[in-house]
Write a protein that binds this DNA or RNA. Structure first.
Lengths: 112, 112
DNA sequence: TTTGGTATCTAAACAGATTATATACTAATG
DNA sequence: CATTAGTATATAATCTGTTTAGATACCAAA
């Protein structure tokens, strides 16, 4: 059977960029935010977030720094770069189109 | 970079079921229908359709038969089964929820 | 006869997501 | 004080739907 994560596939990076637009964050927190919004239907594994971070950092979409580990486990923070913001804008535009197409295809509405 | 097909991933089978609800069809035709609806943003390769057919037939979602090859290349037709119809209904319900969640996550609207 | 469209099929490669596992710090429980 | 649970990061190996590439085959038009 398909991964449950196939529903999110291709959008993980877009969602991470969207969250980081609100301010710097770190893997564990982002994973929890997605899980909370997922309402039990969508869930992400933390490994998915961390591997996405690696890709996105290489592409220059994110910058990273270590938080000052005062109490608790160390955190690696990520911030969105200028390129990341531009990339998000593109992805958002694409999603709006893709969403319309997918709705037409899945629900079967035709607009001639 | 991500496959362009990652946008469709996880929904291919749902779309095939949706199309077959309108009547029996075959791989080449289904691929063209998705391509036409895809507006250049979404595209499927025929191999994706054919491998999906195999999976879906094994799951009992589809039944298949050869068309009478009067002129032109032979066609293998597929029809949706009862199980396939029930499966589509489930997938449609899931999609409606997933679509909402994805829109919230990607666009960043929160509903407290 | 060669090109292009129609039509199906499969092995191998691709890549994002998952699984499994390791590490490490802190707070609360017993 | 030992144990458990929560927080937090990381990576190798595996999984699986999709893509790539190649094969086969029929027909019509140039």
């Amino acid at each position: 059977m398909a991964h449950s994560g196939d529903l999110l596939r291709g959008h993980t990076e877009t969602i991470i960029l969207r969250i980081l637009k609100d301010g710097d964050s770190y893997g564990y927190e982002i994973a929890k935010k997605i899980m909370d919004a997922g309402e039990g239907i969508i869930d992400v594994k933390d490994a998915t977030i961390y591997t996405a971070f690696r890709r996105m950092e290489e592409e220059g979409l994110l910058a990273t720094y270590w938080g000052d580990g005062v109490g608790g486990a160390r955190r690696r923070y990520y911030s969105i770069t200028e390129r990341g913001r531009a990339n998000y804008d593109e992805r958002l535009k694409e999603w709006i189109k893709v969403d319309q197409i997918l709705n037409n295809l899945i629900k079967g509405e035709q607009n001639d």
